[in-house]
Structures are given as C-alpha cells and as structure tokens.
Simulated scan of single mutants.
Amino acid sequence: MTLFRPCIDLHQGKVKQIVGGSLNDTGAKENFISDYDAAYYANLYREHALTGGHVIALGKDPENKLEALSALRAYPNGLQYGGGVTVKNAADYLKAGASHVIVTSYLFENGEFSWDRLDQIKRETGTERLVLDLSCRRVGESWFIATDRWQTITSTEVNMENLVELANHCDEFLIHAADVEGLQAGIDEKLVTLLGQGCPIDVTYAGGARSLADLKRVHELSNGQVDLTIGSALDIFGGHGVTLDDCISWNTQQ
C-alpha cells in the first residue's frame, strides 16, 4: 500500500522547500523557509509515529550537518539521512541515529557508476541500512540518475533492469523526479508507473505532489508499490495543497 513519507530538507542551515532543478553552487529558488529547526520536525514526525522519512542536507554548508544531527538525535532510528554520504562518514551517521544512510553522488566517478564504491560503502552499512538515491532527470522518454545537486546527468538509466540489479545491494530506493521537484505541478506519472512495475524493494518517490489526491494516484499507478513524499504542498512547509493531518489519516487507513 502506498504510504506518505515525511521529509526534512536542509539548505544553508535552514529547513526549506526549494525548486529542485534550480539548486546550484550559488543557491536555489526557494518555496519556503521555516522558522523552526530540523529537530522540531523530527519531533513532530516521532510524535505521530511517521516512519521511513528522510532528512537531506542540500549543499555543503556546515550548518546543514549540525541541523541534521539534531534531527537524528530527536528521532533516533526514525529518519534516513542523505547529503554528502561517503564511505568515510556513513557509519558516523548511523551511529548518530539514522536508520539508514542515503547515497548518490559518491557512487559515481566521472559520471560512471562505480561498483567498487558501492561495495565499499556496503561494508560500512550493510545492505539493510543503505538507501540508494536514484534521483533523476528526464532525457527524451527516459530518466537518468542525476548527481551533484541534480545538475550532472549520468549515463545510468532508471529502468527496470537497473532497478532489479541494484535492489540486491540496498534496502530501499529514494527517487526524486528533479524536473518537477518543488513545482507542485503534479507527479511524473510515467516514472511512478515504471517504478511500480516490479521493483523488488521499497521505493519512495518525490516530486511534484500537490494534494492528497496524489497519494491515491501514486497508489493506483504503482499498484500500491511506491510510497510518496510531499514537500512544498504540505501545510507544515507553508503549502496549501494538503495537511499533515490528512497524510497521517491516509497512512492510518492503509
């Protein structure tokens, strides 16, 4: 069954919602900047027993790490962590309270997927605490993994063959549709359909969700095999499309 998965996105040391495709070295187009810190949201999710969410540090600002660590302390083993994860620090984030670490850019060298790096990080985390972030951008009628703040499109396609192969090496996939992330213009229905066609492990999709109806739509398109993260449209992030209470009720009914 499709479930709502919560998120905490950090940029420049603040909890924000941004337009994903706008993120670069100088900043990003911002939809929302919270007056609350990351620990506030972590406590909110813990109080409502929302599981499988993630805290993502966007960019290299050291304040991001401090905020992320405070969120992990507030909700130990309740949040996955992503953002600059490498073989050198993956175990540290797990010890700090992350249920899983989320990895993308580290797995690529010169735009090519590195199986050696995947093996290295698996030795630190085990497959059971590793999430592969296969966030992607559309190229024609296909999708390719995008790294470096979704600005570098790699040669690795998001297709069922690759999903099945990579599923042997991790516990879950996290997939942002970077072209629609933060736009509240609707989900990428073709991508969600692809992800629901037989991916053997849990998948969380993010990008474009704008209402409670999108949870139902993802459930229909994926046969209940894909979960959904809602960000900019959510009331706790300044949105007007859906409330957190609505999402909690949806999960309870599934």
Rank of each mutant, 00 (worst) to 15 (best):
L3H: 15
H11V: 00
H11I: 02
K14D: 05
K14F: 11
K14L: 05
I18R: 01
I18D: 03
V19C: 02
G20H: 13
G20Q: 09
G21V: 07
L23N: 02
N24A: 01
D25T: 12
T26S: 15
G27W: 10
G27V: 00
A28I: 11
K29L: 13
E30N: 14
N31C: 08
N31Y: 06
D35A: 11
Y36F: 14
Y41P: 07
A42P: 12
E47K: 15
E47D: 15
H48A: 09
H48S: 08
V55E: 03
I56T: 02
A57Y: 07
N64D: 02
K65R: 14
L66R: 15
L66G: 13
S70M: 05
S70P: 04
A71K: 07
N77G: 06
G78R: 11
G78D: 11
L79P: 10
Q80G: 10
Q80C: 07
G82E: 11
G83E: 12
G83P: 12
V85P: 11
K88P: 02
K95S: 14
G97F: 10
G97L: 11
G97D: 10
G97P: 11
H100T: 00
H100A: 00
V101N: 05
I102G: 01
I102H: 02
L107I: 03
L107H: 05
F108L: 01
N110T: 05
R117H: 11
L118K: 02
D119K: 15
D119W: 07
K122C: 10
R123S: 15
E128K: 15
R129I: 00
V131Y: 10
L134C: 11
R137F: 05
R137T: 00
F144N: 00
I145P: 06
T147F: 06
T152S: 13
T154C: 03
T154D: 06
N162R: 12
L163T: 01
E165C: 05
L166E: 06
A167L: 10
A167K: 06
E172R: 15
L174R: 05
I175Y: 12
I175E: 10
V180N: 02
E181N: 10
G182W: 13
A185E: 15
D188K: 03
K190W: 04
L191C: 00
L191M: 01
L194D: 01
I201A: 01
Y205E: 03
A209D: 07
R210Q: 15
S211K: 05
S211F: 09
L212H: 03
L212Q: 02
A213G: 15
A213P: 07
D214H: 05
L221Q: 06
S222V: 05
G224W: 08
D227N: 15
L228Y: 11
T229N: 10
I230R: 09
I230D: 12
G231C: 12
D235T: 10
D235M: 09
G238E: 13
G239S: 07
H240V: 14
I248H: 10
S249F: 09
T252F: 13
Q254Y: 06
